[in-house]
């Protein structure tokens, strides 16, 4: 659990650099909110309080990373309560939840408070003294243009290198691909992550979005844009790989990641929301028991796959 926490530190650092104290506030409120909710829930249910296991804190950090830096304190706190109480404890706590708790909270907030959840600020690196200015995320910018004109926007606000380092509008934790990849590399090194879900997820997004881009580059953005903007890296490495809510077999993980990628591209290109990573992962979470059932490893010496009828 501690390794996951450390792996998120680079992303948190970049967020504080670009968004200043507001990002730090959201991170603190979300983490403390999740810890408090877990303690209260367990106390009310007469169970041992297990907040020292770190799982609630991780959910808090992941939730904060999925919120806009302008998120008001009450929204963040509400998100924490939803994540832990509705996303996790009602199912029986750690290990029993079918959906990623942080994503449950994010999606509930997104649907319930669309204004607050889609008010993005222009990054203002520490020391530049810029005031808070609101803007759209790159994906939002593209979706607006396509909805209005049916074409790519003429002039995007950022360059690919800015996207890579994190100088763009977006959720606290999704802006810097570099910081997220650093954290993910650490988790690979510690053998907490396996490659299957992230590679299947990102690979599917790149292939499918690349196909659309090749067919109509005037309308659809290229795969690198899909990769670096929005929550794909955060989702593929840190959210979709949640062990509790993803399949257990290698085949299952590949299927799960592919499904996440497919849904993400479909929602991004044809859905009402500019970003689809959260919805894609939650929908695939729902499919996980089914995937597990149909991707059971072949038992040693079994003549044919049994149990799947």
């Amino acid at each position: 659990m501690h390794a996951v926490f450390y792996s998120l530190l680079p992303a948190c650092g970049v967020a504080v650099y670009f968004f200043g104290p507001s990002a730090l506030t959201v991170l603190l409120i979300a983490t403390l909110g999740c810890l408090a909710t877990e303690a209260v829930c367990q106390r009310l249910m007469g169970q041992p309080v297990t907040i020292v296991d770190g799982s609630a804190a991780i959910t808090g950090v992941l939730l904060a990373l999925n919120l806009p830096p302008t998120s008001p304190w009450w929204l963040t706190l509400l998100g924490s309560v939803i994540a832990i109480a509705i996303g996790k404890q009602v199912y029986g706590g750690l290990g029993s939840n079918p959906f990623n708790p942080a994503l449950v909270a994010r999606v509930v907030l997104l649907i319930s408070f669309p204004v607050q959840m889609t008010t993005w600020s222009v990054p203002a690196p520490l020391g530049t003294g810029l005031d808070l200015v609101t803007t759209a995320t790159p994906l939002g910018e593209w979706k607006n243009a396509v909805m209005l004109t049916g074409k790519m926007p003429v002039d995007m606000q950022g360059s690919m290198s800015e996207y890579f380092f994190g100088n763009m509008a977006g959720s606290i934790g999704e802006i810097s691909a570099l910081a997220l990849l650093l954290g993910a590399a650490y988790l690979f090194y510690k053998r907490i992550l396996t490659w299957h879900i992230p590679v299947a997820f990102i690979g599917t997004v790149v292939l499918l979005s690349g196909l659309f881009w090749l067919v109509n580059p005037g309308k659809y953005p290229d795969p690198v844009f899909h990769l670096l903007t929005g929550g794909l890296i955060l989702g593929a490495f840190f959210m979709a790989t949640d062990m509790v809510t993803s399949p257990v077999s290698v085949k299952g993980m590949l299927l799960f990641g592919t499904g996440c990628g497919l849904l993400t591209v479909l929602i991004r290109l044809f859905g009402g929301y500019p970003e689809g990573v959260s919805f894609a992962i939650l929908l695939m979470n729902a499919a996980t028991p089914l995937i597990d059932r149909y991707t059971r490893p072949k038992t040693f010496g079994a003549l044919s796959q049994r149990g799947t009828q």
């Binding site: 062990m243 509790v244 257990v248 038992t299 040693f300």
Partner: peptide, 21 residues
């Protein structure tokens, strides 16, 4: 502790079973 479906038992099982399940 609770099972968090980390699947280490699945990788370890020489008979390719799902031990936790």
């Amino acid at each position: 502790g609770p099972c968090i479906r980390c699947a280490r038992c699945v990788q370890a099982c020489p008979i390719h079973l799902l031990p936790a399940t």
